[in-house]
Amino acid sequence: MVIVLILTIMINLTIGISLYYFLKRRMIIFTDRFGFTSSYVSSSTSGLAISLGLVLLFQNHIEMIGVLNILIGIGFGWLYGSLLNSQSIIAGIYHGGISGMMGTMLGAIVLDPSICGLPESLLSGQNIIVVFALLSVCIQGLSALLLLFSFRA
């Protein structure tokens, strides 16, 4: 289980950083609107996938990992938003921080559904963790593919 989680975090980081270099090469054709949309989409999915993986990996240190997740989301938002101008920086920072908090919340509920009033899930602990880790890779890959596809316009 630990190997799968570390592998998914590495894949998500690789996709996020390579997406930054891909966007930086084509910076010359950005309009205002495309800068907003690209920083919104990429910072949201990167923050969500990486924070979900980190919470599932370090299960006993949710407090420190929550702080770290918000910082990671803000860093990704700053990175993607700094390609264009200040309004895309604001959009990236806001949505990156929000997605970091949401990844922490989703990971805490996956680990223990009774904090939300739900009964225990039918799947055992390790299976549901592995399925959510694979789901984060699917989300990150699909959003990266859609972002590359939208350059054709």
Binding site: T37, S44, S99, M102, M105, C116, S143, F149, S150, R152
Partner: peptide, 25 residues
């Protein structure tokens, strides 16, 4: 448009993640 595809996709994703937690209320 191509960019409305991106915006609708990401908002549906975030709302879908949040919906079971809201439903537990």
């Amino acid at each position: 448009d191509y960019q409305t595809i991106l915006t609708g996709f990401i908002n549906g994703l975030i709302m879908g993640i949040m919906a079971p937690m809201v439903g537990a209320v």
